[in-house]
């Protein structure tokens, strides 16, 4: 099975995992190992001056796992651009998972702000991976603006609803000139497999693993699902038909 390549970086795993909301840092680390991921997302936040807290980075093997800073909770292009620059300095890489959020309840992207921020950050030398609506036209505009990949949502962040518009994900993959990573909305392994069967080049998830009753087991399930879905996509599924076609020969039936 071929590797995923984004902006010249090769990833052997097509599963990108978050670092938020795990029961503990130790469980997060075990999940990352079980998932086989080579890229994890991180958020950029103010250091707590008054209180010494454990560093997240003590629990990520950055020799094996690449850090992808996000701009989560940014509601304007300006805030996202500012956060991306801080993330670049903190992490010493020019990659960013770009989020410009447009609505608090759905956390749906503000696509106008997203496109604007993509243009600016590409110009500033960033490798931009925008979290976007599952809209083929928007994905094309983002790729045209220089995005290194497009990351359409499967469903609202943290909702676990699964892929709500499979046809759009399929169309986005058919039309896109850059890798397509389904980002957000996965609830369980079959959702990840469906995303991959639709042709997605990868899946990004956080809550589906971190919030599972047994996060480490779910991380392994997701690894297998992403691999299975990719294999099934490459294998080429049979066409759907309304009626049965026998699998056993119709000749030589006893009593005929």
């Amino acid at each position: 099975m071929s590797d995923l390549v984004i902006a010249g970086r090769t990833l052997r795993s097509r599963l990108i995992v978050g670092t938020g909301k795990y029961p503990s840092h130790a469980i997060m680390k075990a999940c990352h190992e079980a998932s086989g991921t080579e890229m994890v997302t991180v958020a950029v936040r103010r250091v707590d001056i008054s209180r010494k807290t454990e560093s997240l980075l003590d629990y990520i093997d950055t020799s094996a796992i690449f850090l992808l800073p996000n701009t989560a909770a940014c509601y304007t292009a300006a805030d996202a651009i500012r956060t991306a620059h801080l993330g670049r300095e903190a992490g010493m890489s020019n990659w960013v998972k770009l989020e410009v959020i447009g609505d608090e309840q759905t956390l749906y992207p503000d696509n106008e702000g997203l496109l604007e921020a993509t243009r600016v950050l590409v110009k500033d030398g960033f490798v931009v991976l925008p979290y976007t609506s599952d809209d083929p036209v928007m994905c094309r505009k983002l790729a045209d603006a220089g995005a290194a990949a497009v990351m359409p949502l499967g469903a609202p962040i943290g909702s676990g609803l699964g892929i709500q518009n499979p046809n759009n994900i399929r169309i986005i993959r058919e039309q896109a000139t850059v890798p397509v990573i389904v980002d957000a909305g996965v609830g369980t392994a079959s959702d990840a497999a469906i995303a991959m069967e639709l042709g997605a080049d990868g899946v990004l998830m956080n809550t589906a693993i971190a919030g599972a009753t047994d996060p480490v087991a779910m991380a392994r399930a997701m690894k297998l699902a992403v691999e299975a879905g990719r294999l099934a996509y490459l294998a080429g599924r049979i066409p759907r038909k309304s009626y049965a076609t026998a699998s056993s020969p119709l000749q030589g039936i006893v009593g005929s």
Binding site: M28, V42, V44, L56, T207
Partner: peptide, 10 residues
């Protein structure tokens, strides 16, 4: 002055 670091996120 703003001082930021990486925290858990998706």
């Amino acid at each position: 002055v703003e001082i930021v670091n990486f925290v858990g996120g998706g």
